[in-house]
């Protein structure tokens, strides 16, 4: 099997996997970074969201072979202690119900706010629309993005 070198959470990691293996499963099964979640496997739910060169991306639909030279950040690398303003906002607002979708929500929100620090409600809704929360904690997700935006200003 080919060897791939990844720039992951600021460190270089090497893995041996087949070239079509999605980043999601490399993270979860090879590197024991299980914060990135499996929800649909086809880019529809956002549970697997990571940052690639600062942009939110679906790791389930990202083959390992296409990641050479790209900087990848997962929920584990967003901050080393949960202190990122978006994580703190999630805690303050008490967003999670089952919690399963929330790492993906936080990764989508943090990439979005990095580009738009004072978004309108409409912009928040558009940005978060791709992430499903089956528990329907949408009211609180919306609120937490607003709280995080305030922290970032």
């Amino acid at each position: 099997m080919p060897t791939y070198s990844l720039n992951l959470n600021g460190k270089t990691q090497t893995v041996d996997v087949s070239e079509d293996t999605p980043l999601l499963w490399v993270l979860r099964d090879q590197l024991d970074l299980v914060g990135t979640k499996f929800g649909c496997g086809i880019g529809q739910c956002g549970a697997c969201t990571v940052h690639i060169d600062g942009n939110a991306a679906r790791s389930c639909s990202m083959p390992i072979s296409q990641l050479a030279g790209k900087a990848i950040t997962t929920i584990e690398g967003l901050s080393h202690d949960g202190s990122h303003p978006v994580q703190q906002a999630w805690k303050e607002v008490d967003v999670p119900q089952c919690g399963y979708c929330q790492a993906g929500q936080i990764m989508t929100a943090s990439a979005f706010l990095a580009k738009n620090a004072s978004p309108s409600s409409e912009e928040i809704k558009n940005a978060m629309h791709g992430n499903i929360c089956r528990c329907s904690a949408y009211n609180r997700i919306h609120k937490a993005v607003e709280v995080a935006a305030d922290k970032l200003v």
Binding site: G35, K37, F38, I75, S79, G82, Q87, K91, P96, G99
Partner: peptide, 29 residues
């Protein structure tokens, strides 16, 4: 009184918590 979800810190930092996150020596899928 208002109490935050007791698993909050693990959820927002992506720690192993769910069934799908469980792993043990020699496990096959």
């Amino acid at each position: 009184t208002d109490a935050t979800n007791v698993d909050m810190d693990k959820i927002i930092t992506g720690k192993p918590l769910f069934g799908l996150d469980y792993k043990t020596e020699g496990m096959v899928y």
